[in-house]
Simulated assay, not measured.
Amino acid sequence: MLESLDARISSLAKSKSQANGHKQSETTPKAERKNISEAPCSTCSAHAQAICADLKDQEMDEIARNIRTRLVQTGQSVYREYEEAKYLYTVVTGEIRLANLLDDGRRQVTSFKTAGEVLGEQKNGYYQSDAEAVCDTVVCQIPIKILEKYLQEMPAMQTALTAKVLSEIHELRHHAILLGRKTPIEKIATFLVDRAEKLGGKDSVEVEVMLTMGRNDIADFLGLTIETVSRTITKMKNLGLLEVPSNHSIIIKDMAELENLAEGEK
């Protein structure tokens, strides 16, 4: 269950995370230890969305003895591609970017993980992507060896993790269609609709979408250049579909119209 999904691996190039142009600031082991603390499960803001949500009180007490929370500052890594996989992580607050680098330094961002979502995809004991914070982020980490024991003893956790894996497979298929078949304006529209849904605002006519990531991250996620992203957002703004109060905020003026555009309906 914790092994890498073949669909993702076959579509991404294996490379070292130190390629020029995309190297992020690193946490030293000493600094990383200072950012790790015991997990206050009873006050966790992501508990209702996490894989431990349906556990009984005694099961939660058992898990709390073996998990820790960790602060990951903006630009720092949770783990690197090909690093030994020791933990499975859940985002508590903030947002994590998953990405892979090609040998020539080009980058493909594959996912943005928010509160309650799981990360730590591994194959043969090694992580398969870089995981970096796009803003100050808190993650909850559980050792994989201990997690495997809990999955056998706690069916509710196994069911929840299976649901997370199936959801990720759906997202990967969705992203593959976006990358392979959609035009730039359809890609931007799809990204904003998905973002609004993820943040719980899709049902409103007018929705403000907060962007913790920069335009460069969006470009690498959608397979576009940063210039194309900026030009397309400006075009959509001129069409009256969006307002752009700042680089980290976009207001969708008509969600239904944007959904139609995302699906290729003019």
Rank of each mutant, 00 (worst) to 15 (best):
E171R: 04
K164F: 15
T162Q: 15
A163I: 15
I146N: 14
A163G: 04
T190F: 00
S129P: 06
Y126W: 14
I188D: 06
E197R: 06
L161T: 09
H174M: 14
I142R: 12
V165A: 12
Y150W: 11
A163T: 12
I146W: 00
Q152P: 08
C135H: 03
I169R: 05
V139K: 03
E171C: 01
E148L: 14
I169E: 11
Q158N: 08
P143L: 03
K187G: 09
Q122H: 15
K145Q: 13
P184M: 10
T162G: 05
A176P: 02
A176V: 08
H175M: 10
K198W: 01
D130I: 14
A189I: 03
C135D: 15
A156H: 09
M154P: 11
Y126K: 13
V138R: 11
Y126C: 00
L178R: 14
H170D: 06
L192Y: 10
P184A: 09
T190K: 06
I188H: 04
V193M: 01
Q158M: 05
A189K: 08
L151D: 03
L178H: 04
Q141S: 12
N124E: 15
E168Y: 12
A156S: 15
K187C: 13
L166H: 04
E153M: 05
K149V: 13
S204N: 06
Y127R: 05
A133G: 06
G201P: 09
A160L: 15
L151H: 03
R195H: 10
L192D: 02
S204P: 01
P155M: 13
N124L: 13
V139G: 09
L166W: 01
A196E: 10
H170F: 02
H170A: 07
F191P: 11
V139R: 05
E121C: 00
A176E: 15
Q141G: 12
M154Y: 12
E197I: 11
A176H: 13
G180H: 05
A176W: 02
S167M: 00
I188R: 03
V134P: 01
C140S: 02
L192A: 02
K182F: 06
A160Q: 14
H174P: 03
K202F: 05
I169F: 15
V139W: 04
K164C: 02
A189L: 08
E186I: 01
A156Y: 07
K164G: 07
Q128P: 07
S167A: 00
V165Y: 10
L178E: 07
Y127S: 01
T183H: 07
E186M: 10
P184H: 06
T159I: 12
A131V: 14
Y127F: 12
D130Y: 08
E171N: 03
T137F: 00
T190I: 08
A160D: 07
L166S: 00
L192I: 07
R173W: 04
P143I: 09
A131C: 13
V139Q: 07
A176Q: 11
C140A: 15
H175A: 12
I185K: 01
A131L: 13
K123W: 06
A196V: 07
E121K: 05
L147W: 09
L147R: 12
K187L: 12
K198L: 08
Q128T: 07
K187V: 02
V165K: 12
T159R: 12
P184V: 01
H174N: 12
L172M: 13
T183D: 04
L192Q: 05
S167T: 00
K198S: 10
E153N: 08
A133K: 02
